[in-house]
């Protein structure tokens, strides 16, 4: 009799951990993506506009990425989007 609820709780716990780790990845990704936009627009006269738009897009990006189904979410990250974002941010920050 106890196997059912215990199994459900374990499943819920696993889902909770998966969503938490997904959330952490997404927040880091969105932060870097926004930072990349800020650096790209840094020297333009309309930088202030890009910075304002970036701050609106960041929470939107977090929600959209969190809304993606599991397969599509993994695909998005495996496709190299994260590498591009990381690369742009790092390049613009003068790390390379």
């Amino acid at each position: 009799m106890t196997r059912g609820p215990a199994k459900a709780a374990a499943k819920k716990g696993a889902l909770w951990k998966r969503w938490l780790s997904r959330g952490a990845c997404i927040v880091a990704f969105a932060y870097l993506a926004t930072l990349g936009v800020f650096f790209l627009a840094g020297r333009r006269p309309e930088a202030i506009l890009f910075q304002s738009l970036g701050l609106a897009a960041m929470p939107l990006l977090i929600v959209v990425l969190f809304a993606l189904p599991k397969g599509l979410f993994r695909g998005t990250f495996k496709s190299g989007a994260s590498l591009v974002v990381l690369g742009v941010s790092a390049l613009q920050a003068g790390i390379f």
Partner: peptide, 13 residues
């Protein structure tokens, strides 16, 4: 709880 859009958004919210 299943991994659906509504549940994911509910957890996040």
């Amino acid at each position: 709880m299943r991994d659906t859009l509504r549940n994911r958004m509910g957890w996040l919210h």
